[in-house]
Amino acid sequence: MPEELQPLTGPDRVLRGEALDRLVDLAAGGDERAVQALRAVVAGYRQFDPEIYTRGLNRLWLFGDATLEEPLLVALADEQYGCQAWTARACGQLGIRAAEPLLIDLLEHPDGLTRESACQALGNLSSSAAIQPLTRRLDDPAEFVRAAASEALADIGSDDALTSLWAAFESRRFSRAGYLASALARFGPAVFERLVQATSHRDPEMRFWAARALGASGDERAAEVLTRLASDDHSTTGSGARVSTAAKTALKTLRRIHEREPR
């Protein structure tokens, strides 16, 4: 084992962490030996404590490259090591398409963090094969996984992905649908008219979240609709939130988006 890696395998957890931090600092400064050492941690992950491996992957942008594809695929399938959530995220960040089948399988993993990371990675890969598996995760028992699946479908951005998100939005199976509204807003003109129509829905929950989505869309045509809702629609959702309040918040969001746009 190279000399610079030996402190990462010592018996003291604190010293191992400090040694890793030194390597990270050196790599950030352009030290090629430190970059190669961090790659070696990933390539030989079984030689290191999972904490060292996962903390290393959290700095993947410093050293990640195509040479890590094979060891990451091995680690992604390694259930005993217990680091599939971090490995999944790394595969997405590096665009490792060969990981797609394993990532789709991980959408059914018992650990919520692993399911979340698999969603995020499949979104990064724009995996059309994952649309239906991701759609099933829109009913995940964990809200943060449902949110990750929604964002992944928005990342994929296809008509099928939009269909899945809209079906979940219309079903109103969960009262907190902010993640669906945010994901739908990313489809821009493709979903604008549907959202406008939803602001006239008989269910105030639907109107509430449609208003939020219109604000997040950044489409200036939404201002007129949102102004009307803010003034006239004082209905409340099951949680007691007012549609008019959602519209006012959406108008603020719309203004912030336009203020950030280059002139």
Rank of each mutant, 00 (worst) to 15 (best):
residue 79 E to P: 03
residue 67 T to W: 00
residue 84 Q to W: 10
residue 92 G to L: 14
residue 61 W to H: 08
residue 92 G to C: 13
residue 90 A to E: 13
residue 74 V to D: 07
residue 95 G to F: 05
residue 104 I to G: 15
residue 65 D to R: 01
residue 109 H to V: 12
residue 116 E to C: 09
residue 78 D to I: 03
residue 115 R to E: 11
residue 117 S to L: 02
residue 90 A to Y: 09
residue 96 I to G: 11
residue 114 T to F: 12
residue 61 W to N: 05
residue 91 C to L: 13
residue 113 L to N: 08
residue 68 L to I: 01
residue 122 L to S: 06
residue 69 E to I: 01
residue 66 A to E: 01
residue 100 E to R: 13
residue 90 A to L: 06
residue 96 I to K: 06
residue 70 E to D: 13
residue 114 T to W: 14
residue 70 E to V: 07
residue 106 L to A: 10
residue 62 L to G: 12
residue 111 D to L: 15
residue 93 Q to R: 12
residue 69 E to G: 03
residue 67 T to D: 00
residue 112 G to R: 15
residue 67 T to Y: 01
residue 84 Q to N: 05
residue 65 D to W: 00
residue 123 G to E: 05
residue 108 E to M: 12
residue 97 R to L: 14
residue 58 N to Y: 05
residue 60 L to G: 12
residue 126 S to R: 09
residue 123 G to S: 09
residue 106 L to G: 07
residue 123 G to K: 03
residue 94 L to G: 03
residue 61 W to G: 06
residue 90 A to H: 08
residue 90 A to S: 09
residue 84 Q to G: 01
residue 91 C to A: 08
residue 71 P to L: 09
residue 121 A to F: 07
residue 116 E to P: 05
residue 120 Q to P: 02
residue 64 G to N: 03
residue 69 E to N: 04
residue 109 H to Q: 13
residue 111 D to W: 13
residue 82 G to L: 08
residue 100 E to I: 11
residue 76 L to G: 02
residue 114 T to N: 14
residue 98 A to E: 15
residue 77 A to Q: 09
residue 91 C to F: 05
residue 111 D to A: 14
residue 88 A to V: 05
residue 106 L to N: 08
residue 105 D to W: 12
residue 73 L to R: 11
residue 123 G to C: 06
residue 101 P to D: 10
residue 85 A to F: 02
residue 88 A to E: 13
residue 83 C to Q: 04
residue 117 S to F: 03
residue 85 A to L: 02
residue 109 H to P: 08
residue 58 N to I: 04
residue 123 G to P: 04
residue 108 E to L: 13
residue 77 A to N: 05
residue 91 C to G: 03
residue 70 E to A: 15
residue 89 R to F: 04
residue 110 P to A: 14
residue 68 L to D: 02
residue 126 S to N: 01
residue 98 A to W: 09
residue 96 I to L: 14
residue 67 T to K: 01
residue 84 Q to R: 10
residue 62 L to D: 00
residue 107 L to K: 04
residue 104 I to L: 15
residue 78 D to V: 04
residue 62 L to N: 04
residue 71 P to K: 08
residue 105 D to Y: 10
residue 119 C to D: 08
residue 103 L to T: 14
residue 126 S to I: 00
residue 124 N to W: 03
residue 109 H to I: 04
residue 82 G to D: 03
residue 72 L to W: 12
residue 99 A to N: 15
residue 104 I to T: 14
residue 88 A to M: 08
residue 66 A to T: 00
residue 70 E to P: 07
residue 63 F to W: 07
residue 77 A to L: 12
residue 93 Q to A: 09
residue 108 E to T: 15
residue 83 C to T: 04
residue 62 L to A: 11
residue 124 N to V: 00
residue 124 N to E: 11
